Simulated assay, not measured.
Amino acid sequence: MDHVLTLVAPRGGLSPATLHAARDALAAIGATTGTPDWLSPDEAADLPFAGLAPQQADAAGRAALEGQAVDIIAQGSAGRRKRLLIADMDSTIVTTETLDELAGQAGIKDRIAAITKRAMNGELDFEGALRERVGMLKGLGVEALQRTWEETELMPGARELVATMRANGARCALVSGGFTFFTGRVAALVGFHEHHSNMLLEADGRLTGHVADPILGRNAKLATLKRLAAEEGIGLDATVAVGDGANDLDMIQAAGLGVAFRAKPVVAAAARVRIDHGDLRGLLFAQGYRAADIVLD
């Protein structure tokens, strides 16, 4: 079979009946289907198929399983394992928006979070919105950064994603519109080879309300994906990119496996691959890794 439909659910949430429903939906529109292959019991399975484009299979599977907490990824069978991972940080590798949480230290989280929400859904220019939010933090003591870091949590599956891809020879880069104070710590904790982000400026132990130029935004994320792929001597089809906000969309659409992870509406609507229910292990199952292949940190 030249294509595969991967179904992923929160652990314990994928049943044989659900898999059979997806198979029947593909068969009903003319696909030839093969024997299902369980990648992780009750969590992830591959359904080989032929005779349909991935977009057709994806749409049929989603319609058949509407209302169920199951993610569906249709793609070609060849070249599933990728050699470069580019990941956003906020609301992707970590569970929060670190700038919003930092604003909480200044007592203005709601004000800044409202701007973040609009920027991440593509309603505001990212660079302008970032400068505006950082400006609102002028005078905040830099010790607030450490307090914010101590309250930051990793997204489930983050360590397994990076550790497994590293163990299989992939280069892993954290590329964020956030700040180096956080990306450096996240990269070290999770195991990324490198991190790229923005720098908050400070003086006399306080934030100045400015961010260093140039700002790493939407265009820079795409440029980083292309540059690192070229450095590795691979095509973009051998890359995976994951993120949740509008500033991630260009790199998501350019990557061989571009994943909108629990994404904002504008991103979820534009990305062909979405993970709405599972954790970051879903990116491994999408690449054909089995539960036994996953490196546990």
Rank of each mutant, 00 (worst) to 15 (best):
M1F: 13
H3A: 13
L5F: 09
T6Q: 02
P10T: 05
G12I: 02
G13E: 02
H20V: 10
A22R: 00
A28K: 06
A31Y: 00
P36Y: 13
S40T: 09
A44H: 10
D46I: 02
F49C: 02
F49R: 00
F49Q: 01
A50P: 05
Q56V: 01
D58S: 12
D58R: 03
G61R: 00
G61F: 00
G61Q: 00
A64P: 08
G67V: 07
G67R: 08
Q68L: 14
A69M: 09
V70E: 02
D71Y: 04
Q75N: 04
R80W: 11
R80H: 11
A87T: 10
M89H: 11
T96A: 12
L99I: 15
E101K: 04
E101S: 03
E101N: 05
L102P: 06
G104L: 13
G107R: 12
I108E: 05
K109A: 13
D110Q: 15
A114F: 12
A119K: 06
L124I: 10
D125P: 07
E127G: 13
L130G: 05
R133L: 06
R133F: 04
G135C: 11
M136N: 04
K138W: 01
V142H: 05
L145V: 09
Q146S: 08
R147M: 07
E151F: 01
R159A: 14
V162G: 11
M165T: 07
M165A: 08
R166I: 08
G169Q: 04
A170W: 11
S176R: 09
G178H: 08
G178Y: 06
F179R: 03
F179Y: 13
G184Y: 00
G184D: 14
F192A: 04
E194F: 11
H195D: 14
N198Q: 11
M199H: 12
L201C: 08
A203N: 08
A203P: 02
G205V: 08
V211S: 02
V211Y: 01
V211I: 15
L216V: 15
R218P: 08
K221D: 11
T224Q: 07
T224W: 10
L225R: 10
K226Q: 15
E232V: 01
G235N: 09
V242C: 12
G245D: 03
A254K: 06
V267N: 04
I275S: 07
L280Y: 13
R281E: 13
G288Y: 04
A291S: 14
I294A: 03
L296M: 14
